[in-house]
Nucleic acid binder design. Structure first.
Length: 584
RNA sequence: GGUGGCGUAGUUCAGUUGGUUAGAAUGCCGGCCUGUCACGCCGGAGGUCGCGAGUUCGAGUCUCGUCGUCACCGCCA
């Protein structure tokens, strides 16, 4: 028996008990005639002690110990003469009778403690050591707890957890596929799923009615702090439901998670049309923890001989509360910030609403106090506030103002990580025009149903057709999305038509789904949440890497085992592959 | 594919206008220490300044390239 107790459970009630503990050496404090050893496992830390009453052989063994040695210690629980209130086991210690090294340790490259001295690179290279740290392990414990809560909720609601294949067929549209060569079928490839989309729809045709799966998905695209090449979705699909039913079910799930995991009651989720999100927040994933809405002031600022505004398609403004005292340097900083290539604005106009009711702007030459007052009224600015204005191409400016809004909120500390504001963004456009290839793409995916009242516009103005598609957004993070699906094969062929598929291509790519729909497809709809993002949001983290046990870096590499890596020529031969690596 | 930040001791970092032998903290090793818990005190070892060119009498420092890493843009239905 390696242990009778864990390192986190002994208390004053256990005094006098002989116990056996196993764990890692956290720290050794050698005071000469007396030595303390902190023994750690995932449950906590227990202090071992050796003094003049301890057998000599134990003290000798102790001298060999170093940080992160795995040891087994046998001894008696006794009360400390000086207690440590900071740890749960701080009232007791173990007077050692014997100690055994189960496994020695090299000196670790960084300290295994909450405030480690290790940088990110090093921690990733030695991720198994990093995971020993309580702060990192807590994130994965949270993840496990959340997965458990999801299964509880959906199982109780009658959902069937079903696995779908990982080796599937590559389809066009969407992200790049990761691809796997088939040995038994020379020259042919599987793809790894970007999501189990078609399979879950087939399960609906199969009559499963309510499906879910916590499932790995794969996308071969460039990475970000909140994007990994393999990530986990809470994937769901339901039959005989409308949009409202899906949103109710998953709002219920989300609220249950907040309550169960964080003990937070969140308000009912508002529904915001995509168009409103874009106009007021400059984003399809608005952060609604704070206001600072975007105002269209085009009408009131034009025609005053300020050529920059007069020649602009759109002039928009946000009001930063209490920022009228911004210095020249701060305003220049903001101007430079919006001029960066990532934002790409030409400039920034400001209006300071002074405490005395007067206005000071960078365009005083063109606008009177009366006119600036109208700006303030339109944007809701009061004395002490700062109005920030940008002009140019409408879509571009909404985007830029949206970014500026977030930046100002960051500067003003309005994005409290402990506050959660979920909402549904609904009525997304069905299609998106792509300039490069001169064709429409499905904004969500090709099986998304248009809103019934917009179907006539499919022929006349496809770009204006709205979809029965929805996203769950929390604090400016897109947590998940879904749509009501097309289950009518005629409407589906029309969609493929609009997307530029020939009959033959549609048949080749999606034929099996179309075939399935010939045999009685129920009306159905679904949704998928990004599980990693949801966990990182619950943990108040900015990166999903910290909620994944073994994540990949920015370049999609696993720096611990150095994947991806070349394979042997024999393997290539067996797979009928010849490399054609381009020289740089 | 693009823009920017970073790369100096095991680790986290400092390093002035380009100027003698590149520093600090921590970790590591040795010694002392009976109530520590970030123990304390004394001593010691530890460096391809990412790599390669270039400018210069002289480069950790400036220039160019390259590699690694992080953030963002493009991309991600």
């Amino acid at each position: 028996m390696y242990r009778t107790h864990t390192c986190g459970e002994l208390r004053i009630e256990n005094l006098g008990t002989e116990v056996t503990l196993s764990g890692w050496v956290q720290r050794i404090r050698d005071l000469g005639a007396m030595t303390f050893v902190d023994l750690r496992d995932r449950y906590g830390i227990t202090q071992l002690v050796v003094d003049e009453n301890t057998d000599k052989s134990v003290a000798e063994n102790l001298e060999k110990l170093g940080r992160e040695f795995v040891i087994q210690a046998i001894g008696t629980v006794r009360e400390r003469s000086s207690k440590n209130k900071n740890i749960a086991t701080g009232d007791v210690e173990i007077a050692l009778k014997s100690i055994q090294i189960l496994s020695p340790s090299a000196v670790p490259p960084f300290t295994i403690q909450d405030d480690t001295d290790g940088g990110d690179d090093l921690r990733m290279k030695y991720r198994y050591l990093d995971l020993r740290r309580t702060v990192v392990r807590k994130n994965l414990e949270l993840r496990a707890k959340m997965a458990h809560a999801i299964r509880n909720y959906l199982n109780a609601d009658g959902f069937i957890e079903t696995e779908t294949p990982v080796l599937i067929k590559s389809t066009p549209e969407g992200a790049r596929d990761f691809v796997v060569p088939s040995r038994m079928n020379p020259g042919e490839f599987y793809a790894l799923p970007q999501s189990p989309q078609m399979f879950k729809q087939l399960l609906m045709v199969a009559g499963f009615d309510k499906y879910y799966q916590i499932v790995k998905c794969f996308r071969d695209e460039d990475l970000r702090a909140d994007r990994q090449p393999e990530f986990t979705q809470i994937d769901c699909e339901m039959s005989f439901v409308e949009q409202k039913d899906v949103l109710e079910t998953f709002e219920g799930l989300t609220r249950y998670m907040f309550k169960e995991v964080l003990d937070i009651d969140v308000d009912e989720f508002p529904w915001m049309p995509y168009s409103e999100a874009m106009e007021k927040y400059g984003s399809d994933k608005p952060d609604t923890r704070f206001e600072m809405l975007i105002n269209d002031i085009s009408e009131i600022v034009k025609g005053k001989d300020f050529v920059v505004f007069d020649s602009a398609e759109y002039i928009g403004a946000i009001c930063a509360k209490g920022c009228a005292e911004y210095t020249r340097k701060q305003l220049d900083g903001l101007t430079n910030w919006v001029k960066r290539p990532q934002i790409g604005a030409k400039g920034l106009v400001y209006v300071k609403c002074n405490a005395d009711g007067s206005y000071k702007s960078s365009v005083d030459k063109f606008y009177s106090q009366e006119e600036l007052k109208l700006w303030a009224e339109t944007t809701g600015a009061e004395a002490g506030d700062l109005i920030l204005v940008m002009s140019g191409d409408k879509n571009h400016m909404l985007d830029a103002l949206g970014e500026l809004r977030l930046e100002m909120a960051n500067q003003l500390g309005l994005r409290d990580k402990k506050v959660f504001k979920p909402l549904w963004v609904v009525d997304f456009p069905l299609l998106e025009w792509d300039e490069e290839s001169q064709r429409f793409f499905a904004m969500h995916h090709p099986f998304t149903s248009p809103k019934p009242e917009d179907i006539p516009m499919l022929d006349t103005a496809p770009g204006k057709v709205r979809a029965n598609a929805y996203d769950l957004v929390i604090n400016g993070v897109e947590i998940g999305g879904g749509s009501v699906r097309i289950f009518d094969s005629e409407l589906q062929s029309k969609m493929f038509d609009l997307l530029g598929f020939t009959k033959k291509q549609a048949e080749e790519q999606f034929g099996f789904l179309m075939n399935a729909f010939k045999y009685g497809a129920p009306p159905h709809a679904g949704i998928a949440f990004g599980f990693d993002r949801l966990v990182s949001l619950f943990a108040s983290l900015d990166t999903i890497r910290d909620v994944i046990a073994f994540p990949k870096n920015n370049s999609g590499r696993d720096v611990m085992n150095d994947a991806p890596a070349p394979i042997a020529k024999e393997q290539l031969d067996e797979l009928n592959l010849i490399l054609n690596t381009k020289e740089k």
